[in-house]
Every structure is written in structure tokens, then in C-alpha cells.
């Protein structure tokens, strides 16, 4: 685990915002790399990290995939996770809304808190957790339903029946996902009629329709062409005004373009976590430098 004294020594100001201590607003207001945004709430709630992972170990059977990972995810920020294949970044992402529950024989040690609440508690409502922490996958995966039904799916299963409420939520979510203008006249068509980039934005609309706090994205653009990728990246920039985003990406330029903070994982360890601009211009750890400059191994 990275020691906080090391952070403090190297980058006292910037790392204060992401460290073990809750960031304060005055700092965020003056940091060049994390400018204050409109709608950024003040008070204790805003200062507390949305997600606080502490000393997380993760095992697939006997194979340990994560080693002592600790990370604070600040509210209304985009955090990118980078690292070579098999470094544990997707595993860590899946831990954040317990998607890992779906795999047999896995075990997790340490603590992951969402708004101060332990998410690995046995009695926790996992469905509710996944509403609050939504997920976008590499391969866009709309349901074999209409565009409309895809977007309101989460609301329907949580019991919303009112047609007008569903329609309003649908429009709001599709607008938020920058898809409304393209699909407003064909909401009853199958989601599969849409292009790949549109289907991915539909999945984003579906995830945001239920008003999550955090949106996890696992390689959301790797199946898309550059133009669709650019639209998703632009969308990420807009979404972070309302949500906190954690994105796993193989594309380092994408990480540097869209994120406020970047974590570099290697062989299951979080080697370095810091302000994106600093990490890509002046990384602290040699392993990070070697990876981002392509001198690995």
C-alpha cells in the first residue's frame, strides 16, 4: 500500500484531495487540476469520499488478484484505473458494486465503504447497492426490448408504474446520455436497431435513469470507433457534474483526457494514485513511469 506520508512529502497539496483525509472545498477551489464545478455541493457530504476502499485483498479461489488496495474516490470526479491486462483493475471495479458476487469461490478482505457504509456487509441489499453504483460494460448490452423499455427498466423493477413518471425519466436520461435527439421519434423501436455507439449511450441512459451516485465503466469505448468514443468521452465530462465516475481503460490517452485522478495498478497492487495531470507528466513511481511511457518489462 502507498503510504500517505510519501504522498504528503511529494505532493502535499494535490494529494490532500485524494488521501486518507477528507478533502476540503477550499483546496478543490484552488487546485489547478480539479477546478470547482457548478453544482458542486458544499458541506460534509461533499468533502467525504463517495467510495473509500481500505486494504482490499481479493481472491479467486487461492489466486490473489488484489493486494492491500486502498483508494478514496472523491465525489463528482472521474477516476481512471490503468494498468496492463490482469493487473486487477477490472476486479477492483467489480468489487465496488459487488459484481464479483456472481463468481463462485471468491473472497474479499478489507473494507469498501459507500458513503461511509460497508458494502460487503452480509445483510446489505445488493440490488440497492447496484442501483446506487451502476455499471457500463465493454460490450454494450441493451436488453432485447424497445429503446424506451431499456431506459426505464430499472425504474419498472423498482416498482414505478406511473406512465408520465417513466416518460419523464426516459427523456431526462436520454438527454443526459446525449441520445435524445437521435431517438426521440423511435422510442418504440428495438434497441438493437441502434448503432454500437448509440447502444452504449443507451446503456449509460439506462444506468443513470435510476439516479445512481457512482457509475462504473469497464472499457466503455473499446468496442467503439473513434467518433463514438469521442462522444462517450464528451459525455463522461458532462456526467461528472452529477455522478462520480470510475473508469477502467486500456487507453492511456483516454485516461488522461477524461479523468481527474488516475490509479495505476500492477500485479494486483495500486502502485500510484494521484491527480491525472501529475501522474502523466511527473509520476512518482518508476513502475508508473515505465508503464505510461511504454518501457514496461
Amino acid at each position: 500500500m502507498l503510504s500517505m506520508t510519501q504522498f504528503a512529502k511529494e505532493e502535499s497539496d494535490d494529494f490532500a484531495a485524494i488521501g486518507q483525509n477528507p478533502p476540503d472545498d477550499s483546496h478543490l477551489a484552488t487546485s489547478a487540476s480539479a477546478p470547482p464545478r457548478e453544482g458542486y455541493a458544499t458541506g460534509n457530504d461533499a468533502q467525504r469520499p463517495v467510495i473509500r476502499a481500505s486494504n482490499v485483498d481479493f481472491f479467486y479461489g487461492n489466486a490473489q488478484a488484489l493486494f492491500d488496495v486502498s483508494m478514496d474516490v472523491p465525489r463528482n470526479r472521474v477516476v481512471a484505473l490503468i494498468g496492463p491486462s490482469g493487473c486487477g483493475k477490472s476486479t477492483f471495479l467489480r468489487c465496488l458494486n459487488r459484481m464479483t458476487d456472481l463468481i463462485d469461490g471468491v473472497r474479499v478482505n478489507g473494507s469498501i465503504q459507500l458513503d461511509g457504509e460497508e458494502i460487503n456487509r452480509p445483510d446489505l441489499d445488493v440490488i440497492e447497492l447496484r442501483r446506487r453504483v451502476g455499471m457500463i460494460f465493454q460490450r454494450y448490452n441493451p436488453f432485447p426490448k424497445s429503446i424506451f423499455e431499456n431506459v426505464v427498466y430499472g425504474l419498472r423493477i423498482s416498482g414505478v408504474r406511473d406512465r408520465r413518471a417513466l416518460e419523464e425519466a426516459c427523456e431526462r436520461s436520454l438527454r443526459g446520455a446525449a441520445l435524445w435527439d437521435e431517438v426521440k421519434d423511435r422510442l418504440k423501436e428495438s434497441a438493437f436497431e441502434l448503432s454500437g455507439g448509440q447502444q452504449q449511450r443507451l446503456c449509460i441512459a439506462r444506468a443513470t435513469a435510476v439516479n445512481p451516485e457512482v457509475v462504473l465503466m469497464d472499457e466503455p469505448c473499446s468496442a467503439l470507433d473513434p467518433r463514438s468514443t469521442a462522444r462517450i468521452e464528451k459525455l463522461i465530462g458532462e456526467l461528472r457534474n452529477k455522478y462520480t465516475i470510475v473508469i477502467v481503460t486500456h487507453n492511456m490517452q483516454q485516461a488522461s483526457r477524461v479523468s481527474d485522478f488516475t490509479g495505476f495498478l500492477y500485479e494486483g497492487r495500486l502502485v500510484e494514485f494521484g491527480v491525472t495531470q501529475t501522474l502523466f507528466t511527473k509520476p512518482i513511481e518508476k513502475e508508473t513511469e515505465d508503464y505510461i511511457t511504454g518501457r514496461f518489462g
Partner: peptide, 9 residues
């Protein structure tokens, strides 16, 4: 090449 870190510097 869009260099980063020491290469960029």
C-alpha cells in the same frame, strides 16, 4: 506518439 512523463518533458 503522444509522449508522457519523462518523454514528454
Amino acid at each position: 506518439h503522444q509522449p508522457v512523463a519523462s518523454d514528454l518533458r
